[in-house]
């Protein structure tokens, strides 16, 4: 079996996953990082979104054996000793979660968008997160929370 060395939230890991196991399986079952959620298991809901080499992907559609040298960031990798990431705090301030199942994916999509485009329009936010489903249908506050950090000002309704 192939041995894979990667970093998850800046910590190095060496794994020997069987080929059919996904990044999501490894995060949740081997590394105890249960922030990424298993929703549809088909790349349609975005609940398993993580950042892979800085880009958001569905971790249910990435085989763990493919990840030699990869840098993965999960929701557990945001924030630090000083507290929450600004976007995490904004989700709280804007009541941008109900059941919370989609929240890790939504926040990581917001981070990914703001990294490549610090001042997105509301339409750009909506398009960017369109691969993430919120079954509570709380989209309005999710968009507000991201816009508030984007410095749009429209987010504080």
């Amino acid at each position: 079996m192939k041995t894979v060395t990667l970093t998850v939230n800046n910590r190095p890991h060496t794994l020997t996953p069987s080929p059919e196991r996904t990044l999501l399986d490894v995060l949740r079952e081997d590394l105890g990082l249960t922030g990424a959620k298993r929703g549809c298991d088909a790349g349609e809901c975005g609940a398993c979104t993580v950042l892979l080499n800085g880009k958001p992907v569905n971790s249910c559609l990435v085989l763990a054996v493919e990840l030699s040298g990869a840098a993965v960031v999960t929701i557990e990798g945001l924030g630090g000793p000083d507290g929450l990431d600004r976007l995490q705090q904004s989700f709280i301030d804007n009541f941008a979660l109900q059941c919370g199942y989609c929240t890790p994916g939504m926040i990581l999509m917001g981070k990914a968008l703001l990294m490549q485009n610090p001042h997105p329009t509301e339409a750009e936010v909506k398009e960017f997160i369109s691969g993430n489903l919120c079954r509570c249908t709380g989209y309005e506050n999710i968009v507000k929370a991201i816009m508030a950090v984007a410095g749009g000002g429209e987010g504080n309704g």
Binding site: G43, P56, V62, G131
Partner: peptide, 9 residues
């Protein structure tokens, strides 16, 4: 095609 996440793979 699909979504941002899918288009990255």
């Amino acid at each position: 095609v699909a979504s941002v996440q899918i288009r990255h793979r």
